Every structure is written in structure tokens, then in C-alpha cells.
Computed example of a mutant assay.
Amino acid sequence: MSTTALSETASTTPPTSSGEQPDVASSELRRGDRSPRRADAARPADPSGRRQTFGRAVHAEWVKVRSLRSTWITSFIAIGITVLLGAGIAIGYASSPEFADRAADAIISGNQFGQIVVAVLGALIITGEYSSGQIRSSLAAVPHRGRLLVAKAIVVGVLAFVIGALSTLLAWAASAPFMNGHAASLADPEYLGFVWGTGLSFAGIALMSLGLGFLLRSTAGAITLAMTLMFVIDLPISLMAMKWDWAARLQGFEPLQTAVAVYDPFQHMVTWGQADSIYFMQQWQAALVFGAWAIVPLALGWLLFARRDA
């Protein structure tokens, strides 16, 4: 460096109170350190820490589910179908001397049709995220994939349970005034079993469909497979059951057949343990099979979800 450049640098730097020239590099370093420290000090600390927890994951899933228009549309359709069919058949039975003694139990006659819509709801909640790309944001917020899946399962299961239980209550309320004294009382613990039993059966179907959604990542694929397992496959098996006994036993393992053990917990409509029918299992065995229909797809979905990219 030339003598002229050194003198210019010294002349542009103000002297200290003692008359000495300050060190330029140290002055610049102090100025560089001071700015970020001020910014950090000005930023308020978050008292909650914003730590990602399981409770927050469940809350986030509920916020997403309730903000979707499809959630409310499918929920209202499921309730409407279940109530209209259940109440209508119950009122019709009450007006017929031949079926009047079965009128009170007929409020659950629309359950299978409501379960179709609940299956659609369970699939949409996860496949909609894949189709829109929202799943990447979900994983950014909840990197632990097992936690995300369980949070979704809890929200879906609780929502489906409420839909099922509310549908049964509304079917009873809509039909009781028109049943000419054949309506049962909700004060009866066995009759109240229709309410929580229907809720559990709706939750199981919704979880099965959610698991299929995790497996297939496709709305059309998940709904098609769910409908096949619930209804379509029953037709060829029923035809085969006319000739082969093993087909009749296979029919007894279908989701909607085993669901009866759950939404009719006190065997008002079906008697289990009949050797020569599709109800050949004991009720507790059928309930376990129905639970497997919900748990196995979810477990398989979790295995693939934990290993595949979003």
C-alpha cells in the first residue's frame, strides 16, 4: 500500500479522545456484531415454544378436515340417507301388523347405505391431500409420519362415530311419533346399543377406507376398492354360495356382514352362531373380524407411508 493511501485512511478515521487512531478492522467487527444481536433482542420469545406435539397434530388435522366443503357435504349425505331409510322403514313396519314387532329395531335399516358415504369421506380426507399436494405441507408441519397417520385416524374415527351415532338418534326421533306405540325407549340400555354400535361401525368403515387411501393415494382407486370390498364382491360370492358351502362361509367375513355384530350389539336383529348361515361365527369373533378390516389397511398404509416419498 502506498504512503498516500495510508494517509487518506488515517485522515478519514476520527481520532479517539486520547488522540490515537482507532483500529479500523475492530471498529467494523463491532458494528457487524451489534446489528444481529439487536435484532435477536428485539424478537419476542414464544412462551409456548411452538414445539410440535401429538395434541397439536390432532388439532391441525381437525382444522383441515372441518375446513373442507367435502367433509360437510358427505357428512350430511351420510346422515340424511341413514335417517330417511331407517325412519321410513321403521314407520312402515309399525303400520303393518306382520312386522310391527320389528319396527323399533328397523331404525338401523339404513346403516349400510350410510356406511357407503362414510367410506367415501374416509378416502377423501387423505387422497385429497395427495391430489392437491397438501400432503407435503402436512409432512413439513408433522415430520413424524406415524404421528401424522394416527392423528388423521383419530379425527376420521371420531367424526365417523359422531355421524353414525347422530344418525341413529335422529332416525329414532323422526320415527317415534309415527310408530303407533311401537317405538322403543332410549332409556333401555340394550336399545341404546344401536346408537353407540352404529357409531363404532361407521368409524370402522371410515378407518378402513382411510387405510386404503394411504395405500393407493388415489381417490378413485381407494373408493373403488372400498366399494368392491363392501358390495361388489358380495354378488359373485352369493352366487357361488348357492353351490359351495365354503363360499357361504367366505361371505360371512365381508365387512358389511361382520359390521352387524357391531351395530347390533345385543343381537336384536341377527342371532350369531348359526352353523348353516353366513352368521356362523360367534358375535365376538365377527366383531374381531370387522376390527381387522379397519386395522389391517391402516397398518399396511402406515408401512408404505413411512417408506415412500410424498
Rank of each mutant, 00 (worst) to 15 (best):
T168L: 15
L170A: 15
A171R: 10
W172R: 06
W172V: 10
W172C: 07
A173D: 13
A173R: 11
S175P: 10
S175N: 10
S175A: 15
P177R: 05
P177N: 10
P177E: 10
F178W: 14
M179Q: 14
G181M: 02
A183Y: 03
A183H: 04
A184D: 11
A187H: 11
D188V: 05
D188K: 06
E190A: 08
E190C: 00
L192R: 11
L192H: 04
G193E: 09
G193R: 07
V195T: 06
V195R: 05
V195F: 07
W196T: 02
G197W: 01
T198S: 14
G199E: 04
G199P: 04
L200N: 02
L200Q: 03
S201M: 03
F202L: 08
A203T: 03
I205T: 10
A206K: 07
L207D: 03
L212F: 13
L212N: 03
G213H: 08
G213T: 06
L215R: 02
L216H: 04
R217S: 03
S218C: 03
T219D: 06
L225P: 09
L225F: 14
T228C: 05
M230W: 04
F231K: 01
V232R: 09
V232L: 15
I233K: 11
D234Y: 12
L235S: 10
P236I: 08
P236M: 12
I237E: 10
M240S: 07
K243D: 12
W244F: 15
W246C: 02
W246K: 02
W246R: 02
W246E: 11
A247F: 08
L250D: 01
F253V: 12
F253Y: 15
F253M: 14
P255S: 08
A259D: 00
A259M: 01
V260T: 12
A261H: 03
V262W: 00
D264G: 04
D264A: 02
Q267L: 06
V270R: 10
T271S: 03
W272V: 13
W272L: 13
W272R: 12
S277N: 14
F280V: 10
M281G: 09
Q282R: 13
Q282G: 15
